[in-house]
């Protein structure tokens, strides 16, 4: 199973990034091989629709689970189409959130915001 987390730095000890679409990197953690890789988020500098592009990248990397503090509705649409489950992070490092998820301590993210930029949101 592959878990994705938006992170501020390329480290397991990194904070979880407050933004999904504009996070600088994504940590992809494989629970079977216990390997982690960091992806540069090419969407971070987009003029618009960053969440859509970031979600496309997450889906393309065959991720099963996303851990994020928040998520916009367009990104959520993409991730739901890709059947990726979305859980809400707690205020801790990326590694702590992975451990908390595996221990069954994270809850499903059920508040989806409508986007910040005057487009894409209703």
């Amino acid at each position: 199973m592959k878990i994705a987390i938006p992170v501020d730095e390329k480290s397991l000890a990194s904070n979880v990034c407050v933004s999904f679409g504009r996070a600088p990197y994504f940590l992809i953690y494989d629970t079977e091989t216990k390997e982690s890789i960091f992806l540069d988020n090419g969407a971070a500098a987009s003029t618009g629709g960053a969440g859509i592009r970031a979600a496309q990248m997450i889906a393309d990397n065959k991720v099963n689970i996303l851990l994020t503090p928040r998520l916009g509705e367009n990104a959520a649409d993409v991730l739901k189409s890709a059947e990726i489950e979305i859980y809400k992070t707690a205020t801790a490092s990326a590694k702590d959130n992975i451990d908390a998820f595996i221990a069954g301590k994270l809850l499903l993210l059920n508040e989806i915001h409508s986007g910040f930029h005057g487009h894409g949101g209703k």
Binding site: G49, I52, A59, G121
Partner: peptide
Amino acid sequence: CVEFCKFNALAYIKDKLIVFEDI
């Protein structure tokens, strides 16, 4: 189309193209 769109209004997921009309 997905790669072309500067506004990221298109996504391709599970063999299906999604158009984000508002974007």
